[in-house]
Amino acid sequence: MTDLDLERVVPLEGGHNFRDLGGYPTMDGRTVARGLIYRSGTMAELSDGDHAMLDAIGLKVICDFRSSQERDRRPSRLPAMASYEIWARDHHSSAGDVTFALQTPGATADTARLHILEAYRDLAYEQAPSYRELFRRIVDGPLPLVFHCAAGKDRTGIAAALLLDLLGVERAIIMQDYALTDRFFARGCELVAKDPFGAKLKGIDPQIWEPIMRADPSYLAAMFDTLEQRHGSARGFLKEELDLSDADCATIRTRLLI
């Protein structure tokens, strides 16, 4: 990692891929403010020291994008009297479709990659209710806020990309932020193995399922391409699918840019 990357990562003992979205320059010469929006992977193994760290950064809200089943299997380890709000919605995830595809006869790394590419064309729509809540809270809710899923790569990665795009960060930098998740690849695989769902990957050649764990920028590009084809731009998706008005978008920029 570069020095800037290391500065962005919050050093949690039991956390995964927890990092500040601030510090990135925008195309109009401003900068995304530090210490307001964070992205993360699972919080199922946070230590008492990690809880103290979250208090130290002044965290106000946790938005958990995981499905109801994921939260039941691997609940977040948070204080009973947490000082921050925890938001999640009851829903079923399509993540199981990926595992099913890997278990079919003749599955290869290439077919796994193609499957995850197709998933990225749908994920923004599947997660639209969660993203709508996230952006609404950024418009008029308390900050700092962290949003997360399990690996902090797919659902979280798309949300981060949409937010950075709205703020005017260059697409190349957005891709770099997404690709940073690969720095935590080994830890991500370790955590997946602890989830009963991940047990379905046992017996499958790691070379076959590794592509679904990688933060390949082509996945994010597929998401952006789909939104641009259907809505003209990623911001068109925010307005048409997440009900964000021009005034909402302007408020988000005012709150998060310096």
Rank of each mutant, 00 (worst) to 15 (best):
Q127V: 06
E126F: 05
C63K: 10
A119D: 11
P129S: 08
L114V: 11
H91Q: 05
S83D: 13
R113P: 07
D110E: 15
I57R: 01
G157T: 02
L134M: 07
R155D: 03
L143D: 10
R71M: 13
R121M: 11
E118M: 10
A150W: 10
D122C: 13
F100M: 14
A119K: 08
L59K: 01
P144Q: 12
M81E: 12
G106W: 00
A95K: 14
L145H: 07
S130F: 06
S130G: 09
E126I: 10
L102N: 04
P75N: 03
D90G: 07
T99S: 14
A101M: 13
F100R: 15
P129M: 00
S76T: 06
E85A: 12
Y84R: 06
D64I: 01
A112Y: 01
P105K: 02
V98S: 07
E70Q: 04
R132D: 12
W87E: 11
D97G: 13
I57T: 09
D64F: 05
G157I: 00
E85V: 13
A119T: 11
F65N: 06
Y131M: 08
F147S: 02
W87M: 10
S83T: 14
I116Q: 02
F147Q: 02
Y120K: 06
L102T: 00
S130E: 12
F65Q: 05
G106N: 03
P79L: 08
Y125K: 10
F135R: 09
Q127F: 07
C149T: 12
S94W: 12
S130Y: 09
C149N: 09
R71Y: 09
A107D: 08
D140M: 06
T156P: 00
E118I: 08
L117N: 12
L117F: 12
P105Y: 05
R136S: 07
L114R: 15
A124C: 06
C149I: 13
R73E: 15
Q127A: 13
A101L: 10
D72F: 01
G152T: 09
G152I: 01
K60E: 14
C63I: 13
